[in-house]
Simulated assay, not measured.
Amino acid sequence: MARFALRIEYHGGPFCGWQRQAEGLPSVQAAVEAALGRLEPAEHRIAAAGRTDAGVHATGQVAHADLARDWDPFRLSEALNWHLKPLPVAVTACARVADDFHARFSAVERRYLFRMVARRAPVTLDAGLVWQVRELPDPAAMRDAASHLVGRHDFTTFRSALCQADSPVKTLDEIAIDEVPCPGGHEIRFTLRARSFLHNQVRSIVGTLERVGAGAWPPARVAAALAARDRAACGPVAPPQGLYLTGVSYPADPFAG
């Protein structure tokens, strides 16, 4: 068997999430596995760096697949993209990797982007790709609040009740909040980096920070919510369509060179 790493981009709108569903609902995993089955007739199971939720997008998801044939990586990516059409899923890089490479367990960092657009007019070209709010939130206040979340903490407050992680303790390496102009308004971009995240952690953080930016919460309340270690202390969970898995890092970049 030959193991390949795949960097995958997708629009999450048509899917119930990354993970294959027992009910047969459309998932990104099932789409890629079906494409692999057209290249090598067999039952394929792939593993990914992150199990994105329904409606969440990716520009840098990483998965690995084991195939009987030692494919040329370029030809494999081209063949997969052919069989993935017309679904909004694409393999943007492919590499032969060692048998002990694991897309999830070998990862040392994951990066997420959350896009929020503040404008009065409805979004058109970015419909389904951003969270639209009507009023511009205060980026400075949100940065002040976000500073309380950077570092190693018990993130129970920002963890879904359905989260299956063994521990709520995580180290959040960065939260950057940038404002850029867009037609008719402004886009707020939240960039978060960590070795790993809890289920709904990013969306819970962004939804809570929006409350600060809107003036409904003082920044210090985010610190109090974190210390409470209580899901009830969390703000609203941001909608999925603004969230993107943008990258996964490994001790050695499988796609380098």
Rank of each mutant, 00 (worst) to 15 (best):
A90D: 07
M116W: 15
V89T: 03
Y112W: 11
P86M: 04
D72A: 08
R111N: 05
A79R: 05
R120E: 12
A98I: 04
A103K: 03
A98P: 02
A118I: 02
R75I: 04
D99P: 06
C94P: 05
R96Q: 06
A93C: 11
V89W: 15
D99R: 14
R110E: 12
V97Y: 14
F114W: 13
R110D: 00
E78L: 13
E78D: 13
D72K: 09
V97M: 09
D100A: 06
T92S: 15
T92P: 00
V91A: 13
D72T: 11
Y112S: 00
L84M: 07
A90P: 01
S106V: 11
A79S: 06
V117E: 11
K85L: 13
R115N: 01
N81D: 05
V123M: 00
K85T: 13
V117F: 15
A79Q: 00
P86C: 01
L84T: 02
E109K: 09
A107S: 08
H83V: 03
R120M: 09
M116Y: 15
L113N: 04
D72R: 10
W71A: 01
F74P: 02
S106Y: 15
R119M: 13
W71Q: 02
L84H: 13
P73W: 14
P86E: 02
A103G: 02
L84Q: 07
R115Q: 15
R104L: 10
A103S: 07
V108F: 12
F114N: 07
A98N: 09
P122C: 03
R115V: 14
A95H: 13
V123C: 12
P73C: 08
P73R: 03
V97T: 04
A95D: 04
F105P: 01
D100E: 12
D100K: 05
R120I: 10
D100T: 02
R75L: 14
R75T: 05
R110H: 10
A107V: 01
H102P: 00
A103D: 01
L80T: 02
V97W: 12
V108Q: 09
A95P: 09
E109P: 04
D100M: 05
D99G: 06
F114A: 08
A103R: 04
V123L: 09
M116A: 05
E109Y: 13
M116R: 12
S106I: 09
P73N: 06
E78W: 15
P86L: 11
